[in-house]
Design a protein around this nucleic acid. Structure first.
Lengths: 224, 224
DNA sequence: TCTGTTTGTAACAATTCTGTAATATCTGCT
DNA sequence: AGCAGATATTACAGAATTGTTACAAACAGA
């Protein structure tokens, strides 16, 4: 399977040139022309995202921040690119949210080199993205959960909670933390909502539900 | 209790992005926007300080130097970061006692990696903060207590008292001190409440309960 | 639009925690 | 030993936390 890369830039010509060159290098490349459009795509399928900082509508930085908040997409490396203009200093500040940074105008050669470098650094090439514990298996790319090879139907919320917990087994997450990472800052829901979702998850996971433990006064965790 | 990190940088955006990402990693993060402001904070509470070299007002170097002069703060690891990637400032930083050095612009992933590395090196890692005495073990992050590898169920209050004592073995805590640190100022409870909780703790800890000693007229302590 | 699913909320039940008070025991001193 | 002050123990009820269920709104697909 080819390594997939997503380019998000409102300048169509840039997308074209980049995707052309990256495809020559053997990558599979998709393009989005706005952050809004990109956010509707199945981001977790991509091994790397090239993100323009300055776009009309949602900025690349904002999009990156949202990605970091979801356990599904938090680990995807991002390369920012932006025109070095009057806001040079601001750009410097923003770049640190990324795994790499490229200033426009850039040479195609440079971009390809950085893409390869970041992928090497993050060991993400061909990464299967599967979480496993005994007979419990979660395929992050496919959004599926299996127990002993038979599928368990989890809803999006349930799956994200499970992924968050499974990625940090043993760690206890406070309700506040869970809200921040599953529901983002935009939506406001009650603490009790977490409890309800944990209950649902436990029920669906059967015997494995017992590993989702409560730390009274602290929160929840996946306890091995 | 989470590992606390202080970020000192006059660029607010940098503070934001770093703190956001470090919080996701499970650290508790505070920010200061100048060395002067930072020096007014209770520095000894932090397990690590990320310090910008170039700030208006007092420089990061100067602040580090002052920290090294106080026994309270001399051992806190410091990671310098600076826009000038010149070898010169790097050398200055390391001689002053910095534990690591990062040149801007940096990737968040890099910073997080270095933070973890430094904490690991200093035996203060955020992944598994563990207090241990013979067969008694407390995992602070997991909020769990074990005796000879089997879990002992402690309540929140009991656990907090035990952690307080175990962190300062030999030291005697007055009731007043214990109230202040476990119950904060918010809640007001009787002195006798402490006694009851100590009793409960002793019973649950079995043989190790004997190490929780009373200093008549003074208070309690974990006496090795 | 109809239908089924997902998801948050509310209400209530079950459980666990925790401070208090009453009583017993201990400690240091004379 | 006897006393006074300090600490230990116990039981209990109220508080706090968590679990469960049912329901309705929002959503998605046909």
């Amino acid at each position: 399977m080819k390594t997939k890369i997503l380019i998000v830039d409102d300048e169509e010509s840039i997308c074209e040139i980049l995707s052309f060159n990256l495809e020559i290098e053997g990558f599979e490349v998709d393009c989005a022309y706005s952050a809004e459009q990109a956010m509707k795509m199945p981001l977790e399928e991509y091994s790397l995202i090239i993100l323009d900082v300055m776009m009309s509508g949602k900025s690349g930085f904002k999009m990156a921040k949202e990605m970091k908040e979801s356990p599904l997409t938090a680990d995807i490396p991002i390369i920012f690119c932006s025109a070095m203009g009057s806001e040079e200093s601001k750009v410097t500040g923003l770049t640190i949210g990324a795994d790499d940074y490229i200033a426009k105008p850039f040479s195609v050669r440079e971009v390809v080199a950085r893409v390869k470098s970041v992928l090497r650094r993050c060991h993400k090439e061909g990464d299967s993205q599967i979480l496993e514990f005994k007979g419990l298996r979660v395929d992050i790319l496919k959004h599926k959960c299996y127990i002993d090879s038979s599928e368990v139907a989890l809803t999006k919320t349930e799956l994200e909670i499970l992924i968050l917990m499974l990625k940090n087994p043993g760690r206890v997450f406070s309700r506040e933390e869970i809200l921040k990472r599953i529901w983002k800052d935009e939506v406001i829901v009650l603490d009790r909502t977490i409890d309800v979702n944990i209950t649902r998850l436990r029920k669906k996971l059967g015997e494995y539900g017992n590993y989702l433990t409560t730390s009274q006064g602290y929160g929840y965790g996946f306890n091995i």
